[in-house]
Design a protein around this nucleic acid. Structure first.
Lengths: 194, 194
DNA sequence: CCTACCGATCGGTAGG
DNA sequence: CCTACCGATCGGTAGG
C-alpha cells in the first residue's frame, strides 16, 4: 500500500511508452531496461517474460476502462445522459494515459495465445456494456437506429481511434473532446432542420 | 500490360496478408517467401529490402484510396450527396482488400524514415480532401459543426476502424455498410424529434 | 530463383 | 540487480 513508484511500475510505464512508439516486436527488453537504468537481464527479476510485460500494460489499461465505464453503465439515469457520460468516461481513460491506451488498442494482439484470448473476452464484455446501453436507448425509442451491435461498434470506432490524434498539450481538455465527440455521435454532423 | 499475376504481385499480396495477421516485425521474409513457394533469399530479386515490400503494400493501398475518393470529392453535387458517396467510396477500398487496408492503417509506421514521412504527407492530403468537403458543408450551412478538422477526424476514425470488425462473408455488402455508416455519421444515432 | 552463408540482435538464463 | 553467456532467428548477400 505504498505510494512509492516501484521499479516494476517504472518498467511497465517504460514498456507502455516504447511499445506505443515502436510497437511490441520492434522494442527489445534491453530498450525497456535501458530506459529505467538497469540491464536487460535484470528485467526478469520483475517479469517472467516479455509477454508478461505486455500483459501488465494491457490488463492494467483494461481495468481502467472498466472502472471508468461500469459506474456509468450501471447508473439509473436517462439513457442519453448515460451515453454522453460513457463517451466522456472512455475518453478520460484514453487521455489519462495515451501510451497504455494505444498499446491496449493496437499491440494487444501480440500477446501469447492464452492472454490474447483473455483480452478478446474482456473486449467483448466491455462492448457488451455499450450494447446494453444502446439497446436500452432503442427500447426507449430515444435512438433511431435498430442494430445495437453495429451502433456500439460505430461508437467504439470513433473513440478508439482518438489516441492517434489527441495530444494532451493541445487546446482541448479530455472533457471538452468527450463532449464534442458525444455531440457528433449522438446528433451526427448534419444540421437539424428547424 | 499483361493480366498475369507476377511473382512480385504474389509476394506483395502474401506480405499484405501476413503483415495484417501478425504485424510487420513478427513476419519474416522467409514467412512471405514460403507462402509463395520460394526461398527467403529469392525475394530479394523482386524487392531490395523488407521495407520495400511494406512500401509496396502501403503505397498501393494509398493509391486506391485516392483513386476512389478523388472523383467524388471533385464532383459538383450537393455536399450531403458527396459526403455520403465519399463514405461509401472509402469503405469500398477497405472491403475490397482488407489485408492491405489494415496494413495501410496500422503497419505503415514501421516504414523507414523517408517512406514514413511520405505516407504522413499522403494521409494529410487525403484528410484534406475530406476537410474541404466538410468546410463546404459548413459554408453551405448544411452541417451543424463548426470545426472542420475535428469533424474530418471523426469521420475517418469511424471509417478506419472498420477493418477490425467487417467480414466480407458477413451479411452486409460494402455498400450497405457504407450507407449505414453514412447515416450514423451524418444524422447521428439519436432519434430526430418530429 | 537456389544454396550456403554472414554478422547482428533477439529473448531468456545461470550464477553470483 | 549484474556479468556473461546461450541457442535461435533475423534481414540480407555472394555466387551460381
Amino acid at each position: 500500500m505504498s505510494l512509492t513508484v516501484t521499479k516494476k511500475d517504472e518498467a511497465r510505464q517504460a514498456a507502455a511508452k516504447l511499445f506505443c512508439e515502436q510497437g511490441y516486436h520492434a522494442t527489445s527488453v534491453r530498450d525497456i531496461a535501458e530506459r529505467i537504468g538497469i540491464q536487460g537481464g535484470s528485467l526478469y527479476s520483475h517479469f517472467a517474460s516479455k509477454d508478461e510485460l505486455l500483459w501488465a500494460v494491457v490488463s492494467d489499461a483494461a481495468d481502467r476502462f472498466f472502472a471508468s465505464l461500469r459506474p456509468v453503465a450501471e447508473a439509473d439515469a436517462p439513457i442519453l445522459n448515460k451515453l454522453r457520460k460513457a463517451v466522456i468516461a472512455h475518453i478520460e481513460v484514453v487521455t489519462n494515459d495515451l501510451d497504455a491506451a494505444a498499446v491496449y488498442i493496437v499491440e494487444w494482439r501480440h500477446l501469447g495465445d492464452e492472454r490474447r484470448q483473455e483480452v478478446t473476452k474482456l473486449r467483448d464484455e466491455y462492448e457488451a456494456l455499450w450494447r446494453d446501453m444502446v439497446e436500452q436507448g432503442i427500447r426507449d425509442r430515444v435512438l433511431a437506429a435498430t442494430d445495437a451491435a453495429s451502433v456500439s461498434r460505430f461508437i467504439l470506432s470513433s473513440l478508439n481511434y482518438l489516441f492517434t490524434w489527441y495530444r494532451p498539450d493541445g487546446p482541448m481538455t479530455a472533457e471538452e473532446v468527450g463532449s464534442m465527440m458525444a455531440d457528433y455521435i449522438l446528433d451526427g454532423i448534419k444540421r437539424r432542420t428547424v
